[in-house]
């Protein structure tokens, strides 16, 4: 069998056009000829990788952008988004916390864990805004979200827990429950939930949970545990710089 015949056979097999005796004979040959089998796999992979205009178009665009791209002067912070009013309130709270800390530094120069917590904690900015779609299937979700945005964190956490009862492994709900508990000064409950997310190694919230878990320990004045969690935050991950700043103060 020459190459051209072999290719024709492979292509017919891949497009399921081979039938009857021809199919049986080809399959028998595949069992005994590892090189043929390998070549069949290569033909299939080439076809899957290279088919379609779009992927080639995308590669050209990526190539062009990559050649002209230079890092922007400042890297945008991943959390700087959404909800102007909510953020303004948070900024004011942060400003007050900073003033308190400055005052304390002036007279005492020794920050408590609670103060470090207060100057660093911001409830995670909620990103699921699309309530009218799948979210509305859960009756109290809108309510839980509104309460969170209105900073009624205790009630929001209760509402999220009701939703969780129906969907106990939903990491999004666990994460926002934990955040609301932390904001409501219920560190122990928050810690249990953040640890659950970290244990599950959930792709969406594991980095954020490490940061908030450390803050929860600061809220409890447990500096050692806070420190060990802050040390786990690696460069490039969520709040790395802030974690380093806190570590240098602990």
């Amino acid at each position: 069998m020459n190459s051209e015949e072999k290719y024709a056979l492979i292509e017919k097999y891949l497009s399921k056009e081979l039938e009857g005796d021809a199919l049986e004979s080809f399959e028998a040959q595949l069992q005994t000829d590892p090189e043929l089998k390998e070549e069949l796999v290569l033909h299939r992979q080439l076809s899957e990788t290279l088919k379609g205009e779009k992927v080639h178009e995308l590669r050209n665009v990526l190539k062009e952008v990559n050649e002209n791209w230079e890092a922007p002067a400042t890297t945008p912070d991943a959390t700087k988004v959404v909800h102007f009013n909510f953020r303004r309130i948070l900024s004011m709270a942060a400003a007050v916390a900073l003033l308190l800390i400055a005052y304390h530094w002036f007279f005492n120069n020794n920050l408590s864990s609670q103060e470090i917590y207060a100057s660093n904690f911001e409830p995670y900015v909620m990103v699921f805004d699309q309530r009218s779609g799948q979210a509305s299937e859960v009756p109290t979700l809108d309510q839980a979200i509104d309460l969170y945005h209105n900073q009624d964190f205790g009630t929001s956490a209760d509402a999220f827990e009701k939703i969780l009862a129906e969907d106990p492994e939903n990491m999004i709900y666990i994460f926002y429950t934990a955040n609301a508990r932390l904001a409501n000064q219920e560190a122990d409950k928050a810690i249990a939930s953040f640890k659950k997310i970290i244990k599950a190694n959930d792709v969406s919230f594991v980095e954020q949970s490490r940061w908030y878990l450390a803050l929860a320990y600061l809220q409890k004045e447990d500096k050692e545990s806070a420190k060990s969690w802050l040390e786990k935050i690696q460069n490039g991950q969520f709040k790395y710089k802030e974690a380093q700043d806190i570590l240098s103060n602990l």
Binding site: K54, E57, L58, P72
Partner: peptide
Amino acid sequence: GILHADNQVIKQIYDDVLPSVIRWVSE
């Protein structure tokens, strides 16, 4: 935008994400 190979969208993702990837890979 990714699905349509939109040049502006790709540039935006580069600006938004690549700096942190460069930091992490370099580390």
